[in-house]
Simulated assay, not measured.
Amino acid sequence: MKILVTGGTGFIGRHIVWQLAAEGCEVQFSGRNAVAAAEVIRHSPATVHWLPLEHGTPAATATLIDATRCCAAIVHCAALSSPWGTPQSFAQANLDSTDEVLHACHANTVKRLVHLSTPSLYFAFRDRLGIREDEPLPPPVNEYARSKALAETQVHAAGLAEAVILRPRAVFGPWDGTLMPRLLRVMQRGPIPLMRGGRAQLDLTCIDNLVHAVALSLTQPLPRAVCTYNVSNGTPLAFEDLLHSIAEQFRLNLRTQRLPWRLVDAVARALETSARLRGSGEPLLTRYGAGVLAFSQTLDLSAIRNELGYRPVVTQNEGIRQHAQWWLAQQGARS
């Protein structure tokens, strides 16, 4: 089976590439970073092919159409995932890329699309437990969430025969360049702020479990033309308890400081306002970045369990342990 993975040089995309290659698929992956592409190829268990591509450029659609001839499926991972950025940058990375992929699906009658979205669509600066996919979405909390919601609308409007939208929560694992590294940097520098008592219930997703969900999305019969599914480990954990687990496995000293949410929120608002006025990059602290650690957000997995047969293949503790082993080995190699 021939499959194209967009964003295959990224953290999530490369793990999907490697798993599909291990299963004997003919895999082509896109990305614009030649160094990252070489790393993906070097670590692949079987031959994979790199497609140099920058989404949002004049040649992108034609390049994708040519690359997806005889493709059975496309896994669309390419995206800008950040709590901060301009509407234009998110439109190019998240909306233009989705439009290009949909054009390729139509041009070559690609049988199935798996589109990676986000549960950031659910976030609303309040505790939300057991969120289902069919619940009304709150107003988007930032430009990232806005662009991903619009991208989902594009998929729904495309009229594809078979499409799966996945909303994985807080994905972590080897080669993660965003979630765990940010947390580890703060842990190494000073105390971690605990807002609202550090008791916010957080859902996480080990990369192996997301890859498993993608595999099911590619192979299982679908009950509807477009299916949307939450993905996580299914084992929510209080933020303070998660910090203790991470500190133990990553061999770091844990220091915490209890702070009121209103204070942190005020500081984040001030930093965001200053960054906008100066036209500078992402501030040291964003409201969304602080909010996801202050408010509970857990996902209902009933739909993906009942319709695709999803069951996590790696426990949360094992996933953290594996990530820590990889991270410690990387630190040792650099020293």
Rank of each mutant, 00 (worst) to 15 (best):
N33Y: 13
N230W: 05
R321W: 03
G173N: 08
A270Q: 14
T68S: 01
T273Q: 05
I41Y: 11
L95Y: 07
R128H: 05
R334C: 07
R32M: 04
N108C: 08
L237S: 03
A151G: 09
S44G: 14
P52T: 09
L218S: 04
F125N: 02
I192F: 10
L271Q: 15
T256A: 06
W261C: 10
T86S: 14
V17L: 03
P191C: 09
L263T: 15
P140H: 13
L243P: 01
A67V: 06
R269Y: 08
L184P: 13
E307S: 14
G177Q: 15
S117T: 07
S97G: 03
N142A: 11
L204V: 00
T9S: 07
A163E: 14
V17G: 13
A200D: 02
A59Y: 11
T9P: 10
L80T: 11
L184C: 01
T273L: 08
D134A: 10
E100N: 10
F239Q: 03
S44W: 04
K148R: 09
R14E: 06
F29W: 00
R255T: 05
T109D: 13
D66H: 14
L194V: 10
A333M: 15
A73V: 08
L150I: 06
V226D: 02
L51K: 10
A151L: 09
Q297H: 15
A290L: 05
H15T: 07
C206R: 15
A73R: 08
C105G: 02
H115P: 08
C206P: 03
R321F: 06
P283R: 12
G291R: 09
C71I: 10
I207L: 01
L285E: 00
R185E: 15
S245Q: 07
E162Q: 15
C206K: 07
S335T: 12
H15M: 01
D300N: 13
I16F: 01
F250D: 11
G159T: 04
A104P: 09
C71T: 13
L150P: 09
R269H: 08
Q325K: 15
L179I: 03
D300H: 12
A107M: 01
F29M: 02
L102R: 05
G7N: 06
Q297A: 12
N33L: 10
I246Y: 09
S117V: 14
V35E: 12
T6L: 09
R305W: 01
L210P: 10
D176K: 10
Q92C: 06
H106C: 02
D208K: 10
P58K: 06
V27K: 15
A91Y: 12
V186L: 11
A275K: 07
S147C: 03
H115F: 06
